[in-house]
Design a protein around this nucleic acid. Structure first.
Lengths: 203, 203, 203, 203
DNA sequence: ATCTAATCGAGACGGTACGTCGAGTCTTCCC
DNA sequence: GGGAAGACTCGACGTACCGTCTCGATTAGAT
């Protein structure tokens, strides 16, 4: 990962001499960042507001994060760290169906606005783009890829290109979120699952 | 369409007195807008630069367009007006395959950066969002929808949800464009077509 | 003079094409600058406060003045432009005595704080230093120098170094203003005049 | 004296428990403060730089001095403690002449920049102002005042206002130092002495 | 042949957010 | 308890872009 999110591991080991980073302030900053992000969206969130709400100073923000995007990236990362664990029902299709339903539930909640701004920022900021992939996209894709591999040759055709298949189940969600030509609903998750599985099942 | 692109009809009818709009200036502005958009992206394109390159004044820009987004939207619209006509080979699958290939060719060219910024801007500006759908997304979708309806019940299963199906073929292109986790290539268009058609063909 | 105070002459002649400078805004900025200067002193005057009080934006300030010092220099210059004309009583000694009294009156008023900050700023900013000399010091010195030359060989010894003599009558005022070891009073002007003239009169 | 320079007496008497003040650190701080002061001037000297060059921490600086000015004041005081002893040649005029020459030598050396900043800081900080008078100005003035009193009624007119006279010999040096309209040279010391003594000698 | 009104290029304007810097305070560990 | 390291708050700095406005100059149709 790039410098946008610094590695916290070394910190806890080789506690340098000076005053340690104020973890409470860090938390307050990330909390107010997320709150503002979900309230105003990415573009309308300013560092001044984050600082003020957090009771911190802008200097502290800029000491630890290179710019506004970096703060918001980390705030979102912490918020979504444990979200969307891939269900394991014993039925691949049902796993995917539930995963898509949960994802849609996330995107249609307050988090949706944050997500949209996140993807938007990634278009003009390579660091945000990289962070978006590493923090959010890659883990979700790795989960379903492992799951697909488990079922490969069983209920799943062996010759399917997994990367493409993963695109196929996730892309429509991003597409509707970002383009907004049609709503994201739970039924959409079901229909999408059905259609995709129609093309990949063993006959 | 919203106010983002003003209706040119009234202009030509009620030609009041006074100096008429300078169409050359309009063209120069849109040209330099597109040029800048493709060079710097949406977020880094400023109205001052557009005006300077066009040899126009900012006032002229804001007289005819409500804001920066409106100029760029129209610039892009003019540029893409005639692009991506849906091929008609007599084979539905081949039509889609070629369409996706052409779209990918577009997105991987200079136009890609413009598109990315366009989608990004849509996330925080409802007018851009509306324009994006009306100017670009809806026409492409209407084309393929009509084509799908022509083949419905023939080489295409009759019970397929067309809106979902259209999502399925276009979404992965936007997804890879915006997330950037994997490259967009012509082979990708082929593989995507194959996988989608595997689920929708008549057996 | 350096760039700290731009030449306004060309402006009025070759009125460039664009929107002309808003002279009202300029006046409001200089007025609020002077007001703040006399109220808070040089060091405590901020551009934000000047802008706010003037109903102007910081950008406008920085468009016309290179930094805070430049604004305050010009504000002070306008304020003192017509001040301290050298009296002409027909008696050299009386002229000087009255001039020193008037100068002391100025320095002990609200203007004194402004002056102190002005000299202070000149110590770390060469442009302020240059402006201080050109705007304030040099004109006063030129006035008295011309006067001294008029009386040279008459009531004034012909061999006196005029530059040194001018130092001798003005320096003590700056000295007491800046060091503050003793008060500046009108009697001080008289005593100073007496002592200096004791050394330069024809016997 | 105000709090700007704390009384060192208590320290040495009531050596409480704990580690005593590190005199080496104090010296390093004052040395680097003076060095930085002469190199960059008062305004451009930062506490961070002083601390870094001294291998000390800012906390140590602020434990012993109330603010940046206090450190620089003390640094300068130590540096000038033994400087400019008033010569005693048996000839009052020669004493003054040499004293002025020595002062000018000081001001035109590296020390000059420090002095200028010192006076500048005094304009917005009463504590610096007080320190400037107590540490530097008053002792010099006391020296020459005693000398003048010794010669009063002898080579010096008895009715001269000594405070004014002292102003008259020192003020021009500060004036040229701070305003910079003309150079400070040794010849200037001579000419100044001559002119002043022309007004105060017994005839 | 004016008059009138809308347009044009130029560029100054108010506003808002940015990211930086220095002063002075506070917190941790080490001695 | 003193000291080095260094994180912290506060507040000012100077910059950049947005969208508006005000000039003088231009360009047509209306009178």
């Amino acid at each position: 990962m790039s410098s946008i999110a610094r590695d916290p591991v070394d910190e806890s080991i080789s506690r340098g001499r000076g005053r340690p980073r104020d973890e409470v302030a860090r938390t307050r900053i990330l909390d107010s960042a997320l709150e503002t992000l979900e309230e105003l969206g990415f573009a309308n969130t300013t560092c001044d507001v984050i600082a003020e709400r957090a009771g911190a100073s802008k200097a502290t923000i800029y000491r630890w994060w290179s710019n506004k995007a970096a703060v918001l990236v980390e705030a979102l990362r912490e918020a979504v760290a444990l979200e969307l664990p891939l269900p394991d029902t014993g039925d691949l299709r049902e796993d995917i169906r539930q995963q898509l339903r949960n994802f849609i539930k996330l995107l249609t909640g307050r988090r949706g606005l944050a997500f949209r701004g996140f993807v938007a920022a990634a278009q003009s900021d390579p660091e945000v783009s990289e962070a978006l992939r590493l923090v959010w996209v890659a883990p979700r894709r790795a989960d379903v890829k492992a799951r697909f591999e488990r079922y490969r040759g069983k209920t799943l055709r062996a010759d399917v290109d997994l990367e493409l298949l993963i695109d196929l189940i996730y892309a429509p969600l991003y597409y509707r979120l970002l383009i907004g030509h049609a709503p994201l609903s739970e039924e959409y998750a079901d229909a999408l699952t059905d259609l995709v599985f129609a093309g990949i099942r063993l006959h």
